[in-house]
Write a protein that binds this DNA or RNA. Structure first.
Lengths: 111, 111
DNA sequence: TTACATACCTCGATTTTCGAGGTATGTAAA
DNA sequence: TTTACATACCTCGAAAATCGAGGTATGTAA
């Protein structure tokens, strides 16, 4: 199969906005995968597939943008909690500026 | 090689915003590939590789969102000019609404 | 005649996505 | 008690998407 539908633009752009959205949520404070998934649903308006989210989180850790720590809640399964590093905050700040500019440009075009 | 850098978020989101940006530019009036590339550079802040743009345009045509027509300018090479169809405009309008919502949410998170 | 801007295209290696599957804990209903 | 569901993590691999490199061609200007 291939390509199939370009009509679903929404699904298209939601993809690559994900990394920025995750970093943005983490910018508000440490969180774990599942919690992030819930928060992202609010922001992006649709569920983020786990097959995308977890590998992405591991990538952030591998690249030094976030550090992970296992935490045991009073009840329920263990959580892997992620917190931004200084580098992660720097990357977020940079990306945020670029995003704002682009978002403004596109917004003007769409109106 | 693989993944390498998650640090380049900008490059990440620029990718999937492309289809929406193209439709948005086309929403302002018919245009051709090269002209689109120039306009997109303004909006997105970076050049769009031709290997991405042309196949995308063909996809829009294939999916009925745009119709293409060869036009011969007074001077220079022939141009393949794309114009949105009614369906293309409908898809754009829908995507635009969803984009605005998401953009607002993310903006709040980033500020 | 060399160079560059315009203008289009395809191939295919690399990269990215995400559905499906798996493991495990705690709670609440049947 | 056993079934179900929410929480919580993960990997595999088929499918999809990206984009550099290569190709063709026109017109202008050095």
């Amino acid at each position: 199969m291939m390509d199939e539908t370009l009509k679903d633009l929404e699904k298209r752009w939601r993809k690559s906005v994900l990394p920025l959205a995750v970093l943005a949520v983490l910018g508000k404070g440490p969180s774990h995968g599942y919690g992030l998934a819930v928060a992202l649903r609010e922001v992006l308006g649709a569920a983020t597939p786990e097959g995308t989210l977890y590998p992405l989180l591991n990538g952030f850790e591998r690249d030094g943008l976030a550090v992970a720590e296992w935490t045991i809640p009073e009840s329920g399964p263990a959580r892997k909690t992620y917190a931004l590093t200084a580098e992660g905050r720097a990357v977020l700040s940079e990306a945020s500026a670029q995003w704002s500019q682009m978002s403004l440009n596109l917004g003007k075009l769409l109106s």
